[in-house]
Amino acid sequence: MPPVLSIRNLNKVYKGGLAALTNIDLEIEKGEIFALLGPNGAGKTTLINAVCGIVTPSTGEITAAGRNIQRDYRAARSMIGLVPQELTTDAFETVWDTVTFSRGLFGRAPNPAFIEQILKDLSLHDKRKSRIMELSGGMKRRVMIAKALSHEPEILFLDEPTAGVDVELRRDMWKMVRGLRERGVTIILTTHYIEEAEEMADRVGVIRKGKLILVEEKTELMKKLGKKKLTLHLAEPMSALPAGLEDWDLALGKNGGELEYVFDTQSGRTGVSALLRRLTELGVQFRDLDTHSSSLEDIFVDLVHENA
């Protein structure tokens, strides 16, 4: 099956000469949830805006369901919905009017029943007659989502959808995103909350200084790059590491009550069994031990710093 979104050799140099995107190649499959991670200023928004027609690419070819976004922009754009990062809404219009406007703008015949359903799904129905400036920030964000969904897009871009959104609403949004995916909508989101990518995404892309430094299935990524931390809960707290453990990169935690060892699950020799043997030889007693897989966040932080 052809990819629903294909980006080939995309470059973007802004007017001042800043290279915001460098040689981006990316393919997104239909029905996928793709999370784009990266520090501030990495180029996430620029990438999304280039696909959506807000930023003109310097070079490169982008197609949505095979339609070139520049030559065949009508067909391409009518399939794409965008929830931008900034909360940019009208102020004086009502929720209903602004969502209806969006649908029309994207060339769709009026369908009040559909708009009604979207507003219900996003818990905005009782606010439909309110003017947008009377809404809270979280509600405004939902209005922006409603606008993006109003023309029934097949590809949805969510640029930091949960920034400034409370925990409950964030869970609601995740639910909504999964619901959309079940209907075959492809979702590309950017986020600073790693837990979000971990929770939601099928694949993760990491962008840094305009370069896509990694694209990987989330589970693979966590497996591959995952580090584990072994924590030994000591019977007797120690004030310093005993001699004879120099071969391992150890640290004392909990006021000397815990001994921590971080190891790479991918390397052939993790050193765990040797460590345990040595500890026994040295007569170090421990009550308990556990291991902890690192989260995507740890991986992310590693990546962004290591590849500097």
Partner: peptide
Amino acid sequence: TTSTTTTGPTESV
């Protein structure tokens, strides 16, 4: 890097 999971319905694009 182009490996994918296709979890959506299998209709055509």
